[in-house]
Design a protein around this nucleic acid. Structure first.
Length: 750
DNA sequence: GGGGGCTATGGGGGG
DNA sequence: CATAGCCCCC
């Protein structure tokens, strides 16, 4: 347990206090991840079986990082820990227990677009006023009801909620909610909130004592970013830990000052309730900041004093001095883009700063465009996180809709999406007839389609469609995800349709579908053990489960040489040597949506606090006097947050009026940049001469050749038969030690 | 049933 | 400014 020496006194106490409820209040950069990791390592070293440990985070990336770090400390036992996001862990449990709450285990996960389109169709069917019933607003309302454990029945009985809806001119909202739930159920679908809500139901209803099963399973529970949990999540945690005879081993880690998700139901009330519900708890406060230099820490402390609602906490650092905070005052959004890019060039040249240590953080994703333009012009590689992800592109969603139908033909939203795509002669009126029958009989579109009687031509078209889906559905029993997807890409007509388009856009769409196919193939062929995933399962259902909870935030920001562009929300938990917080203007940051309420302004301020504390060494704040917003030129005042900073932390040279000029535009950048990005390693292997050995022959000590990782030496082999896993060191790749699932391995013995 | 063009509307952060 | 929904015509 040498790692205990790497901790300061408070951190060590938080790590070794493993019995009973604990709360860790962790300021930014105070070693929170380290505490969580070492705490789990310490639990395992104390003899707690790894499968009794449940560690919940908000992003897959945080979960993955934690597992990797734990594995570094305790070794491969780490893979048996239940570590993941609330949504992914709960989905995993729900797949097993679905029948106990009236679902089939192949349920679909509806994303926000599916939810919105379903709500839109319900509003239409109910013939409600489209102007009063805004789809987005209705969705938010339903989502927040679920997040507060309010069922449609309870909703309709609540005088407050009903009154609110009347005031918002949406008196029938409870009816929409009721229909929405029924429609999700008949389609065998759960939305993101359901992954929590249905798990709560499962535990609460306690059919076959399923609650006790998980209470006993999870003896030690850890929760990261506790300030971002909602009432529903807290209720689940209570069901799991607060019961007669419980050892109440729950440790929550959070920071009230970094609570930025109130808009999706997160509430600081959980922190206060936790202290009341677990009165015997111990609280540890981590206040020493190891991330940032003096001026940044000072600025952060100052920012948060402007909020009334906060748990008093004082961040301090041993890092003296450092660079003061720069301020860029630009005349326009274009100038802001240029000067930020100029400064990046300057940093790269003067401090030899690698791109992956630089981030541009903005309030809204729409701001990324100008920065993109200038970075591209200056030949600086960049990567945009967030915004429209790969899986949200139309052609990709169309293809995925077919995959979803193959697994769950009752998936109404997937059905609606592709019943007539590519065009097969099933128009609006035919679909309306199907939808009508489905609604009167309370069956899915798919079932309604089997029963409906329409004209001969339409009937044939429907039969063709049904055949495509059924064929793929039968394939799923015996074929892997790639085989079914490749098959469907042809039989659905999507590939042919895109090829026939013969335009540049069509070609790009075709490439995206091909990229999806490549992704599925990679999923199937991947022989490496990935923590938290069932590597044995190469089925289409397993693939869909994985991608439905994936966001492009989950990609590693540090692997390649890119400047990162992302929203402040997306940057939480990350750190960079140089950070640019841009668009610091009234109406933008703070957002115009939050100006009317003091609570929301405080949340914007916490968001600013999060942004500022991402920086390790260099922090630059920028704003523009004018910018294009909503399609027209707008003039915004500098953000109030700028005025709230002390002059002493700001670089006087950058705050004066005369400093409006940018750095001279660089001419040739190539030669000035530090070494070019290291290309990803690809072994030079001729696939024709490569002969994969029988996996059963692989033994420790052998020298082997792997198609992706090149030459390596087998360290050891664990497990038996289908579950044999080889640990192999490949000296030519970044993380040389890899764990390879032999069942799927393509290894040549040298 | 399919396609093109016009108008109205909304515009934030995300699993 | 981007997109959804609508109308109209083939």
């Amino acid at each position: 347990m040498d790692y205990l020496n790497e901790l300061n006194e408070v951190q060590r106490q938080a790590v070794t206090h493993i019995d009973g409820p604990v709360m860790v209040i962790a300021g930014p950069g105070s070693g929170k991840t380290r505490v969580l990791t070492y705490r789990i390592a310490y639990l395992i070293d104390s003899g707690i079986p790894p499968w009794q440990i449940l560690s919940l985070t908000f992003t897959n990336k945080a979960a993955k990082e934690m597992k990797e770090r734990i594995e570094g400390v305790v070794g491969r036992k780490a893979q048996y820990i239940w570590a993941g996001t609330f949504h992914s862990i709960f989905a995993r449990i729900l797949r097993v227990e679905a029948e106990k709450i009236g679902y089939s285990s192949n349920f679909t996960i509806y994303d926000t677009d599916d939810t919105k389109s379903l709500i839109a169709s319900i509003i239409k069917e109910m013939e409600l006023d489209r102007n009063a019933y805004n789809v987005g607003a209705v969705r938010t309302r339903i989502s927040s009801a679920k997040s507060n454990v309010i069922s449609p029945i309870v909703y309709a009985k609540s005088p407050e909620l009903m009154e609110q809806d009347r005031q918002n001119r949406m008196p029938m909202l409870h009816k929409i909610y009721e229909k929405y739930v029924a429609r999700c159920h008949r389609a065998g679908a759960m939305d993101f909130d359901d992954l929590l809500y249905q798990l709560f139901k499962l535990l609460y209803l306690n059919k076959d004592n399923v609650r006790q099963k998980y209470q006993q399973q999870f003896q030690y529970i850890l929760v990261d970013e506790f300030q971002d949990t909602n009432y529903l999540q807290y209720s689940i945690l209570k069901l799991l830990t607060d019961y007669e005879g419980s050892s109440r081993n729950i440790c929550v880690v959070g920071d009230d000052a970094q609570s930025i998700y109130a808009f999706r139901g997160a509430t600081l009330q959980n922190i206060f309730d936790y202290q009341e519900d677990y009165p015997e708890l111990s609280v540890y406060k981590l206040e020493q900041n190891y991330r940032s230099t003096q001026f940044i820490v000072k600025a952060a402390n100052k920012i948060i004093t402007h909020n009334k609602k906060q748990i008093t906490k004082d961040l301090w650092t041993e890092h003296d001095g450092g660079q003061k905070i720069q301020v860029i005052k630009a005349m326009s959004d274009t100038e802001e883009g240029r000067r930020v890019a100029d400064t990046i060039v300057e940093y790269k040249n003067r401090h030899n700063l690698p791109s992956h240590e630089i981030a541009i953080l903005y309030r809204t994703n729409a701001q990324s465009r100008v920065f993109e333009e200038y970075l591209r012009r200056y030949n600086i590689p960049y990567r945009i996180f967030g915004g429209l992800s790969f899986y949200q592109r139309k052609e990709v969603k169309d293809m995925i809709a077919y995959l979803r139908l193959a697994i769950n033909p009752n998936d109404d939203e997937a059905f609606r999406r592709v019943i007539n795509y590519p065009k097969r002669g099933i128009g609006q009126s035919s679909f309306d007839a199907i939808a009508n029958l489905a609604n009167t009989q309370e069956i899915s579109y798919w079932e309604a389609m089997q029963r409906i009687e329409l004209g001969a031509r339409t009937a044939t078209a429907l039969k063709d469609f049904a055949r495509i889906v059924l064929e793929a559905n039968r394939m799923t029993a015996s074929h892997n995800a790639y085989e079914v997807t490749a098959h469907l890409s042809k039989t659905s007509g999507i590939m042919g349709h895109l090829k026939a388009e013969n335009s540049i856009e069509g070609l790009a769409r075709l490439e995206n579908v091909n990229a999806l196919l490549d992704g599925v193939q990679e999923f199937v062929e991947n022989d490496e053990v990935i923590e938290g995933q069932d590597v044995q399962d190469k089925s289409l259902a397993a693939y869909l489960q994985q991608i439905s909870l994936l966001t492009d935030m989950d990609e590693d920001t540090k692997q390649t040489e890119y400047v990162s562009l992302m929203s402040v929300h997306a940057a939480k938990g990350l750190e960079f040597r140089a950070v640019f917080v841009v668009g610091l203007e009234e109406n933008l940051f703070p957002s115009f949506m939050s100006l009317s309420s003091p609570e929301q302004i405080e949340e914007e301020r916490r968001l600013f606090y999060v942004a500022v504390t991402r920086a390790k060494e260099m922090l630059t704040l920028s704003f523009a006097n004018s910018r294009y917003q909503f399609g027209q030129m707008r003039f915004n005042d500098p953000s109030r947050f700028l005025d709230e900073l002390d002059e002493e932390v700001l670089d006087a040279g950058t705050t004066g009026r005369g400093q409006q000029q940018g750095f001279p535009e660089p001419k040739v950048l190539g030669g000035l940049l530090p070494k070019p990005p290291k290309p990803a390693f690809t072994p030079k292997i001729d696939p024709a001469s490569f002969k994969a050995a029988d996996p059963n022959e692989i033994q420790a000590g052998m020298k082997v050749l792997h198609l992706k990782f090149g030459e390596g030496e087998v360290q050891r082999v664990d497990g038996e038969r289908d579950k044999r896993v080889a640990t192999i060191v490949f000296p030519q790749v970044d993380n040389p030690e890899r764990r390879i699932m032999l069942k799927f391995a393509k290894l040549q013995i040298l």
